[in-house]
Design a binder for these strands. Structure first.
Lengths: 135, 135
DNA sequence: TGAAAATATTCTTCAATTCGAATATGCTTG
DNA sequence: CAAGCATATTCGAATTGAAGAATATTTTCA
């Protein structure tokens, strides 16, 4: 069913939904690395790193290989790097938008959550019907 | 800094880390749709859908446009569709691997293994030698 | 054998998500 | 204005996720 595919994708996203785990994936971009290397390269606590690695393993995002004392990790599929790269592009476009918006609304309101944009007061704003700035 | 980019990516992933939200994004692949259309196309509860839409808005994954009574949603950037498509490929490769593994271990064990999917104590830890199908 | 290195797991605590139900808001129309 | 649609928000409960500390396991080496 379509639904299991969606659940699968959701699991992958969930696996990637943490900065530390993203850092790990990015670090593995160049190839396989032992856990210890990841730990001090990314300055993680050992236990914490191991937990995150465990998540990545559970979601099948990384695979590991034991060599003597240590455990080498690598990406299960380099396609994930493509995904991260795509998001980098996405990031800069979003950044541009955000900067513009921040400039428009000044520092006080800036801290608010963004679910509903600052409720445009319809007194001075005007700007025609398409206020959403869509592409 | 690198770190805010990672946090950003993590947020996006988090935004996509739910089957319903993925379904929504996929439904928007063809273009903009009013919330109500999403709701009955995907058979969601109104409140629940609205919550998920709120998450997608907060993460800037969708944008909305109000037209009279209703609110039209659309993807903020079609690049996200690319991401989902990539994951579809990823999914089938992963699926292939699983099937191969099942075939390799024969029907009796297969039955036993699949009779025990309820995540037992250990998560995914054991997996000693190179079960890694790396390149 | 025993100590040390590398990694994993468990426990506790706290924060964040998710859901359904109820309610609120905004628009349109009679 | 009141009624009614379309959508959003809030609340409480249940579930899940994260961090740090402590402990366990496996492997190597003297």
């Amino acid at each position: 069913m379509k639904d299991s595919l969606r659940r699968f994708k959701a699991e992958i996203f969930q696996g990637l939904a943490h900065p530390t785990r993203i850092a790990i994936v990015e670090a593995l971009r160049i190839g396989e690395l032992p856990a210890g290397r990841l730990i001090d390269q990314l300055e993680l606590e050992q236990a914490n790193a191991s937990q995150h690695l465990s998540v990545l393993r559970a979601k099948k995002i990384v695979v590991n290989r034991k060599v003597g004392n240590q455990v080498f990790y690598s990406l299960r599929d380099p396609v994930l790097i493509d995904v991260l790269d795509i998001l980098r592009r996405y990031f800069s476009s979003q950044l541009t938008d955000t900067v513009n918006m921040l400039e428009e609304m000044g520092p006080e309101e800036t801290a608010r959550k963004s679910a509903t944009p600052p409720k445009m007061r319809r007194k001075a704003g005007r700007r025609a019907r398409n206020t959403t700035g869509r592409t």
